[in-house]
Structure formats: C-alpha cells, structure tokens
Design a protein around this nucleic acid. Structure first.
Lengths: 396, 396
DNA sequence: GTAACTTAGTTAATAGGTTTAACTAAGTGG
DNA sequence: CCACTTAGTTAAACCTATTAACTAAGTTAC
C-alpha cells in the first residue's frame, strides 16, 4: 500500500517547508475564503509562518486575495482563494470506448473537455492520438497563456505500485505498458508532472480532492462500466491512494460474490463481474459488443428480461457496496461508471440492498451516504488532473 | 481512515526532530545491526544528524551499541540494536474466553506472558481483574526495574476511529465502552501511554512491526475465532492502521459470500461468519457453547460431518482471502485466531482455494505468501505492545 | 613497514525554517 | 474619542539539519 503524495518519513528543513506549504494550500482548498488567521488556527502554524508562505503563494499565482471577512469587533481578515487564473491542470482518460481529456483550474473547475470515440488500438497509436489532442487543446485561447502543471493519464486496469506501468488492461488488450514512456516522445515540448493511474483510483481521488465543501474523511468510488473496479482515498492534506503490493487494490470486479457461480473471463467462478458489468449484461441479454449498451437497452423498453437482468446486476452491486463497507468502511460511497446511465432499474436495487443491510452491525450509527454520478464521462480525467495538482502543490 | 501514528500534516522544528528520530529508530528495528552510516544512507539524513540522534537514543536506553561491522577497506562501523534491557512494553488482550497479558522488549521479545480463562463479565469487573494481573506482573523481577512505556489493550470488536471507545462486542455483551477510562481508576499508579484497539488490528500491527527481518510492504491479518475479523497495516516508518469512518475496517465477518445463504446474528444472510467462525461450526456440529471447540472436534475423530463442515469453513475462508487479495492486495497474508488450532482439515482447503484462484488475474506475478499462525494466543497482546512502542518512539 | 586509500564517525560553523514578541492595521462598542 | 478586539507584519531569537573539515580506524599496494 504505497501512497502517492504522502510525506516521506524523514526530512530536512526544506521538506518541512514543503509540508507546511502543502498544508496551507490544502486548507484553502477545503475552506475557500479562509483568512491567514483561519489557516493558522487550523494548521497549528503561527501567523508569522502562514503570512510568509501565503505571500509566496500569492506571488506565484497559486492563491489570490478576495474580499474582507468581517470579524466580530476586530480588524477583518482578507479572504484567500485558490488562484484559478494562472495555472492549468490536464487530465486524460483512456477508456475502452475512446479518449477523454480535461483541462481544469486549481479549484477543479473544468475549462475545456474533449471526448473522442475510438476502438482500442496499440499503445503507440493511442499515444499519438492523445498527443495530438492535447497539443490542440493546449493552444486553445482559454488556456494557452496559463502555466501547465502537468498531465495525469488514467487507464482501465491495475497500475504497478512503484513504477507508472499499466499491468494489464484486458479490455484494451494491453499488457505491461509504460504508457508515459510511450507518450513522452509524442509530446517532447511538454514539461510538468507526468502521472499514470488506474481509472477508478483517479476518479476517487478527484471526487475527494475537488469535493465541494469540506470533503469527507474517506471516499470509496465504485466504477461500474465494461468491467468493475474501485478506488479508495483518505487523508486530510495528503490524500492517500492505496495501491497494494501488485496494484490490485480495488479490483473488486473479481471478488467472489457467488461461489460456484458463472465462469468469469479471469478463470474463476462467481466473480462480481459475472453479474454486474457491461459484458455480463451484454451476455445475459445477447447484446453485441459493437452495439451501444445504453441504446440497446432503451430500445427494449419494459422487456421483462431486461428488468430481471438489471435488477440482478443492481443487487450484486449492492452486495459489493456492503462488502466494501465492511472491509474499508469509507465515510462516503460514490457510484460512477457508464453503467450508471442504464438508470434506476439498476441503481435502485443496489441502493435498496445497501440501505437495507448496511446498518445491522452498528445500530444507531449514521448511515453511510451514497452519491451516484449519473454521467461520469469526465470523472476519471478530472481525477487525474487533481493528482497533478496534489503533486505540484508539494513542489510549488 | 485515520492512521494511528502517522505524521501530522504541518509542523514545526520539534516535529521534524520527532520524525527523524522515529525514522532512525525504525531503521534500526528493521535492520538490526545497522551502523550510523547505514542509517544515514537509508534515511537520506546526513551523518551528522544521525550521529546526534543516535547519541541521544543511546543515553536514553533506546539503542545499544554492538560489535564492529567490518567494511571493505575502511574503518568499521559500530552495529546498533534496539536496547532490550531498559524498557518494557505491556499488551493485554480481552477475549471471549479470557485475558491474556504480555510484557515485551523494544524488539518484540516476550519477557512474560499470562493467560487467564474466564467467562465474559462486565467492563468494570474485567478491568479490576486485568489491573490486578498487570500489577502483579509489573512486580516480577524480570521487569520490575524497567521503565514501562505504556499499555495497549485489545478488544474483540470495532473501536471508534477518533476516540478509544469499543463500539460493540457482541461476544462480550459490551456496547460503547470507553474501556481505558474504566481501567484507569484501577491502575492509578500506572503512567505511560494507554491505547485501545481492535484485536485483529493490533495483531496485524504486531506481525508487521515485530516482523523478523525486513517486513513486507503491507500485511493483512485474518483473525478466525468465535467471530472473524481482519486488520491491515502498511507504511514504512509510520505503520498505518486504517480504521474507517466507524471503525468497521476489516469487519469481514459480515461481508456477504453467499447471497441468500444462512441467517447471521447480524440480521443479514450469507455473511462469512455463517460459514467460517466458531459459532457457525458449533451450530453445524451441535457443539455447546461451554464445550471446548477444539477438544469436541478432536473427540469426534474422523467423523464425516466434521470433515465436511471444516472443509466448507476452510473454503469460505479461502474466498475471504481471495476477496481481501482483490480489495486490499497486501504483500503478505497472515492467518491467525483460535480456529487455526482445528488443524489442516480447515486450513488446507483455505490455502488450496486461495492458491488455485489468486493468480488468474495477473499471470506471471509472484504469489502472495500466506503465513499461518497455528497458536496465536498472544499475537494480539503482543501487537498491542507493538503499538505502544510505535507511539512512544515518537515521544522518545 | 609505510604510504595511499577507504569508510566511519565527530565537530564547529553555516544555512534555513519556525517561533516569539513587539509592532502596525483596521475594525467595533461605549 | 478611547478602550478593546482581531488581523497581519516584522525583526530577533531559537532550533534543526547541513556543510565541510576533521579525527579514527581499518585495508591495500608497493
């Protein structure tokens, strides 16, 4: 379980400065409009330290000053916000159905987004295509003058914990691809951070990092699409993304929910993906791979088979949610992925199962809130951009 | 997911010193016999810094110097070890079947251990009994002269993430017990750190912290006893123990492995505990609560019912292991808990199932090693002692 | 056997970060 | 208008790690 942006275990004064700078930025991110005094109170740093760091961040275009915040019977403080005018973060999501790119501000506001539908191809061709799109986007007047802090790329499969290598993406047919190295020659002029992560991890990170208002303590994001995966994020100023020994953290699609059940393409029986995944639903309903799943299902209307299949898939999703609740116990659960577009016939049974069963262990506890992202087209790409920000904040 | 001993997110020079001191101690713990130069190389600190901190730790009885370590063609370095002569760590495990107490050195060597069999009773009576045992142990000549760094207590149920409160222990009949506060009046003379944690979390922590040789990157410990739980630990110098929003991390006994299966005492159906737990095995074989489970099963010899029940339980355990592998992806899996004493008829099917299925996702990867602790009587208590050490190391 | 070399560890001066304490700034309330 | 409160800045002090030069203690080459 290696964390992405965790502070190292030993360090010098420069490290301490980085830590505090990052902590101050995180405070402004979580409490927009905070004053220097607010930050000092929250971080336990002194006014002097906060003042100096804030001054530097203002000069470098990371923070901007806002209006005066009246205080009861004293000098009003100056509100501080992330400066959304001088930098840009890029995030790209390589999916089975195409590429999605996002450019956003330090606050997570999406400035530009592009989506290209294309069939899976080789890493090199994908990189060439992606580079072209990024170069074009980079010249858009909306962001051309901004300093680009880096590019985060997400892929639909486990990424090795230590090096940025995609281990396996069955839906793309890729094995052990160091995609950033493939991409780099196509974008020689690009400087800034380069990051690679699993799509669900990045989405979870983004939902946590760019959360409106004070983020929850921890988030588990379930990505239900062609396959099914999940990502977990926690930590205050340094969000942690556990990856595991082999980068398999969150590969819940192959957790067993029905021992002795249907055969999965992974070779085991009763994997979650045999019940709730794009391919399982296609198989159950006889929908071809080249058909659009959502359209095909809508076309069948109130067909009973469709209803039963979606209900079964939803209930399996509910089981997965419950098991994640009992294993990772996040503060918030987020559901995303293209399957959410199949609508309430799938979502409702999942939520109902989870609601009905989650709380029997600790009666009287507040329930875990579930957030459904009905259209998560750019969620992963935006999450990748968030990771760029988190990394750059340490270097700022 | 709140970590126990993680560095805070912002800090002053004193914090930096703590961080480096703890990091140096951790290096000696993981690499016994390391020299000052070795430590400097591993921690990226300078020789000067390491020298100063080591000097202070030698004077305070945390480290001791050993023999000279010959170096190729240069002055030999002085080996450093954790000083196992001046301090003592106490750990106590409150279980369904009684109390277990351990006193150990900074290196995790058990100096004294006591076990008392008793039926569950009230928190106050348990605290009184525990205090008596601890006081007696404290006067044992083997540890009477040592400085006690603190006491860690483990309980068989989820502990709230922020405060040391046991949320629920069905097997003890306890609900929302701030056990340390109950215990404190019984041990007024005791100073040092007081810690409370879930039994599986503590066991996992101990297996990681006191690991012989370089510990793995992460450990998941599965505790199979009356109920079933798990704990996860990761992190180099600051082992992290995720607890989750409600302290439910690792409550895998109530993850669903057989939807629509048997009813569990938690109210759901098909929980793992309905297949692999002390009470499930008793129920299946008609063994009374007051009988010793292991003895009753041995008495039945090669009875076919016993074989089938244990095999089923083992396979369910294998499913749990596989699901944890796909959700948390630890570097090492550890199996413990009193059920391990039921022997190979249970363990073998679990290992076989895991072996046969774990690797189908990432072919060619090295397999996840599984360690079975056949007698884990003192594993949790020792883990609690490890947590005391980790906490004290920051204050040293 | 001695000089050259290598590695370990210590020391004093230096650099750099945060804090302390005193200050200025800018409001409210009587 | 003065007392009070809170925000933010500044310079000196303090603390920590680093640098660079040193001593210590071994091996290797000749």
């Amino acid at each position: 379980m290696v964390s992405t942006f965790a502070p190292q275990a030993a360090g010098d004064l420069n490290f301490l400065k980085k830590l505090n700078r990052s902590s101050i930025l995180a405070t402004v991110r979580r409490y927009p409009g905070a004053t220097r005094a607010d930050i000092a109170a929250r971080t336990q740093l002194t006014k002097a330290t906060v003042g100096g760091v804030v001054q530097a961040l203002l000069e470098r275009g990371w923070l901007r000053e806002g209006e005066l915040q009246p205080r009861g019977g004293g000098r009003p403080g100056r509100a501080l916000y992330l400066d959304d005018a001088h930098h840009v973060l890029l995030g790209a999501d390589i999916g089975v159905r195409g590429l999605r790119i996002v450019a956003c501000t330090l606050g997570g506001e999406v400035l530009l987004q592009r989506s290209v539908i294309q069939a899976p191809t080789t890493p090199d061709e994908t990189a060439a295509h992606l580079a072209e799109l990024i170069r074009a986007m980079r010249h858009d007047p909306l962001i051309a003058d901004r300093h680009c802090l880096g590019l985060g790329v997400t892929v639909p499969g486990p990424v090795a914990p230590e090096q940025p290598i995609l281990r396996l993406a069955p839906n793309l047919g890729w094995i052990d691809v160091a995609f950033l190295e493939v991409l780099r020659p196509h974008l020689p002029e690009f400087d800034g951070a380069w990051l690679l992560d699993n799509e669900a991890n990045a989405a979870a990170f983004g939902e946590f990092y760019f959360h409106d208002g004070i983020p929850p303590e921890s988030i588990v994001y379930i990505s239900a699409a062609s396959g099914i995966g999940s990502g977990m994020v926690t930590g205050d100023n340094f969000p942690l993304v556990p990856r595991g020994g082999q980068g398999l953290v969150g590969e819940i699609g192959h957790s067993i929910v029905q021992p002795g059940g249907l055969y999965c393409h992974c070779g085991n029986r009763g994997c979650a993906e045999t019940l709730v995944s794009g391919w399982a639903i296609r198989a159950a309903l006889g929908i071809a791979d080249d058909e659009n799943l959502e359209a095909a299902i809508m076309a069948r209307g109130d067909d009973a088979d469709v209803g039963i299949t979606l209900r079964r898939a939803g209930e399996a999703l509910g089981v997965l949610m419950l098991n994640l609740h009992h294993t990772l116990n996040p503060t918030t659960l987020v559901l995303g992925g293209s399957l959410m577009q199949l609508g309430e016939r799938l979502i409702e049974p999942a939520l109902a199962y989870f609601e009905a069963h989650q709380n029997d262990l600790l009666r009287g506890t507040q329930r875990v809130p579930v957030k459904v992202i009905h259209d998560s087209t750019y969620t992963a790409a935006r999450g990748a951009a968030a990771q760029v920000m988190a990394k750059a904040a340490l270097e700022a």
